[in-house]
């Protein structure tokens, strides 16, 4: 009677032990990369925009590469925690990171030492342009039709309150850049820091503040319902989903900014690995599945290859620093 469970136990135990030792046994070899599971670090919380892109891309990537790609959310510190984890991982191509615009300001703001030179770009996959949103009753009362109308009003009535994200966040820099382009000093408006675009939009809906800068997509439901009005988009061309919103350039402001997302690997990752990853991602972003999904979700499609993405990040880093300095934030 007593022997039976013991044998069974020993069997279970030994199976588990063998299984666990066998898994990490294979050594990484760049020639036939990838040979084991890949981890994709997401510096933002589960369910957010970046997380949704990361999870869909991970799903597609594991089909392309034939290895599981698991998303882990390492959130906190305005993206600092996840970007740190992504940049300081072993440069073997088994830890990727879905980097976001915040990589360009972490070092400037003193939140982390990590910046674009700690990573190698694989490919940029998405860019959501910012917009300037106001309450329709304010727009009607002051005759605001585009961003220049609004800025002219600011010049005469300083002290308007704007929100959209925390201090030094992407939408704050979007506002700073627009004001700098128009030659208006940053202290003519007051930035009320919020925990995110959703909170800023709530305040604007309740008319507790005067404007919100955030991505057009994030304000999509309110724009469609007509409870908010967009005065301009900070993109190169008008958006397909919102063709009525003028671009900044149309009204004479040479200013573009969007929150970008792209896949990065730690600096020092071998060229062959980057190439394999880039080719897989390139095939994905060109596929109908990807294009349709991005369109359904309202994400802006924007692709850059590895070399262009590296250049882009370096430029963005320099531009972000200059704007934060001009805004008196650093």
């Amino acid at each position: 009677m007593k022997r039976k469970p013991t044998t069974l136990l020993m069997f279970v135990l030994s199976t588990l032990l063998v299984a666990s030792i066998a898994v990490p046994g294979c050594a990484p070899d760049t020639a036939d990369y990838p040979t084991k599971a890949i981890t994709l670090v997401c510096p933002w919380g589960a369910g957010g925009g970046t997380d949704r892109v990361a999870r869909f891309l991970a799903d597609q990537l594991s089909n392309e590469l034939g290895q599981p790609v698991a998303v882990i959310n390492q959130t906190g510190g305005n993206g600092a925690v996840g970007h740190n984890a992504g940049a300081l991982a072993d440069p073997d191509g088994y830890t990727l990171c879905i980097s976001t615009w915040e990589l360009s300001i972490l070092r400037h703001m003193g939140w982390s030492d990590i910046a674009h030179d700690n990573v190698r770009g694989v490919a940029m996959v998405n860019l959501d342009p910012a917009g300037l949103m106001v309450h329709p009753s304010d727009a009607a009362a002051h005759g605001w039709e585009n961003a220049v109308d609004w800025i002219d009003y600011v010049k005469q009535n300083p002290g308007l309150e704007v929100s959209g994200t925390g201090t030094g966040g992407v939408w704050h820099v979007a506002l700073l850049g627009m004001l700098a382009e128009a030659g208006v000093s940053a202290d003519q408006v007051e930035w009320l820091p919020s925990t995110g675009a959703a909170e800023g939009i709530t305040w604007l809906l309740g008319q507790h503040i005067d404007a919100v800068t955030c991505s057009i997509v994030e304000a999509g439901p309110q724009l469609e319902a007509g409870t908010l009005v967009a005065l301009g988009t900070m993109s190169e061309e008008r958006l397909a989903a919102f063709p009525d919103i003028p671009t900044m350039r149309e009204v004479g402001l040479d200013w573009q900014l969007g929150a970008w997302r792209g896949i990065t690997v730690p600096a020092g990752t071998p060229d062959e690995v980057v190439e394999v990853l880039h080719d897989a991602i390139h095939r994905i972003v060109m596929s109908d599945t990807w294009i349709n999904w991005m369109e359904d979700q309202g994400f802006g499609q924007f692709y850059l290859n590895s070399a262009d993405f590296d250049t882009f990040m370096a430029q963005d880093y320099a531009a972000g620093g200059a704007l934060l300095e001009a805004g008196g934030l650093i």
């Binding site: 906190g76 600092a80 703001m109 201090t167």
Partner: peptide
């Protein structure tokens, strides 16, 4: 963690894990 109003990291002692509090 990072003070949301000014962006200044408080009581984090240089530890990135404490930035978000």
């Amino acid at each position: 963690g990072v003070d949301i109003v000014t962006g200044y990291p408080r009581f984090t002692f240089g530890n990135v894990n404490l930035l978000s509090g």
